[in-house]
Simulated scan of single mutants.
Amino acid sequence: FTYRTDVATPQKRPAELACEKITNDLRSIDPVTSFSAFLFKSDSAVGLCRGNWIDKRFYITAAGCVSTVKFTKIEVGSEHKEIKAVHIHPDFSSETPSLNNIALIEMVSDLDYSSDWHPVCLYTSQVNPESYLMGYFGKIQIVADGECFDKTGADLKPSQLCAKNLKFKRTFLGMPIYKVQENFPIHKLFAIVAKESDDFEPYVITKVFDHLDFIESIVWPKNGN
Rank of each mutant, 00 (worst) to 15 (best):
N100R: 01
P129L: 03
V127D: 14
I102M: 01
I83E: 02
S125W: 06
L99S: 14
L111M: 05
S98W: 02
P129I: 02
D110T: 09
D116A: 15
A144N: 14
T96I: 13
S114Y: 09
A144W: 11
W117F: 14
G135H: 05
D91F: 08
K81F: 09
K151C: 12
L133C: 06
Q126D: 13
M134N: 11
V120E: 01
I105P: 00
D116R: 15
S125D: 15
A85I: 05
S115F: 14
N101P: 04
P97T: 03
I102K: 00
G135D: 02
F92N: 01
Q126H: 10
S94I: 13
S114W: 11
N128E: 14
S114L: 09
E147P: 11
V108W: 15
F92A: 02
V108D: 12
S114H: 08
H118G: 02
H89T: 02
D91Y: 10
K139C: 10
D145K: 10
V86G: 02
T124Y: 09
P129V: 04
S125M: 07
Y136W: 15
N101S: 03
P119D: 07
Y132E: 10
G138N: 09
S98F: 03
S125F: 06
E82G: 03
D110A: 09
V108N: 12
S131C: 13
S98D: 05
E95I: 12
N128C: 13
D116L: 13
H87N: 05
I83S: 02
Q126R: 14
K81S: 07
L99A: 15
P90Y: 01
Q141P: 07
S131F: 10
K139W: 12
K84F: 08
N128H: 12
L133Q: 03
G138A: 10
S125I: 03
M134F: 14
E82A: 05
S93A: 04
E106N: 02
E106M: 03
G138I: 12
S94E: 11
P97N: 03
P119C: 07
I105V: 08
D112Y: 10
I83N: 02
S93H: 03
L111G: 01
G138Y: 06
E147S: 12
V127R: 08
P97V: 03
V127Q: 15
F137G: 10
I102C: 00
N100S: 09
A103Y: 00
Y123R: 00
G135K: 03
F92P: 01
S131L: 10
V127C: 08
S98G: 03
A144C: 10
V86H: 04
Q141Y: 08
N128R: 14
N101D: 10
S131T: 13
K139M: 14
N128A: 14
K84P: 02
F92V: 03
N101T: 05
I88R: 01
E82S: 08
C121S: 06
E82V: 06
S114Q: 05
